[in-house]
Structures are given as C-alpha cells and as structure tokens.
C-alpha cells in the first residue's frame, strides 16, 4: 500500500530524499519534513483519497511516518489503500 503513498510524498512532502529510499517506519520529520510541507501533504492526501482528516488526526504523530499516514487513511477509508 505504501506504493500508493510514495509518489504523493515525493510530490508534496518536499523531502531532500526520494520516498522509495525511506522505510515505512522511518521518521519523516527527521528526513526533512517541515510543518508547512506536512500540511501540503495532508491536503494532497485528502484530495487523492477523497477523505477529510478529522481534528484528532491533525497532530505530529499522525504524519510522523509513512506507516502512520497509511494507518490514518486506512481508518478513514478502509478500501483506499487496498490495491
């Protein structure tokens, strides 16, 4: 399922490295994710998966790793990352 996320991260997270070099549980903030880019990434994910992140997910931990992002999307729309 991370294959669906990686292109969006490459496009919106503005990391100095490519997403396919990052492990699922690797800290995105340490990899260079800024709070500005995190919001841009959230907006792109909402658009791509037709979801809306509730307020309780708008925190640092939800967007700390690709794994945690996938878990949020999974919870909001279980079929979204099935492929």
């Amino acid at each position: 399922m991370l294959d669906t996320l990686r292109p969006l991260i490459d496009k919106h997270a503005r990391l100095p490295v490519k997403a396919d070099t990052l492990a699922a549980g690797q800290d995105l903030y340490a990899a260079g994710l800024t709070s500005f880019a995190a919001v841009q990434l959230m907006l792109a994910l909402e658009e791509a998966f037709d979801i809306e992140f509730p307020e309780r997910m708008l925190n640092r931990r939800s967007f700390a790793t690709m794994e945690s992002i996938a878990a949020c999307i999974q919870e909001l729309r279980p079929q979204a990352l099935a492929s």
């Binding site: 919001v39 307020e55 309780r56 708008l58 925190n59 640092r60 931990r61």
Partner: peptide, 8 residues
C-alpha cells in the same frame, strides 16, 4: 502528548 503535537 497528542494534544501537545496537535495543529490546534
């Protein structure tokens, strides 16, 4: 901790 890291 979640509140401390929240956007709000």
């Amino acid at each position: 901790d979640d509140d401390l890291g929240s956007v709000g």
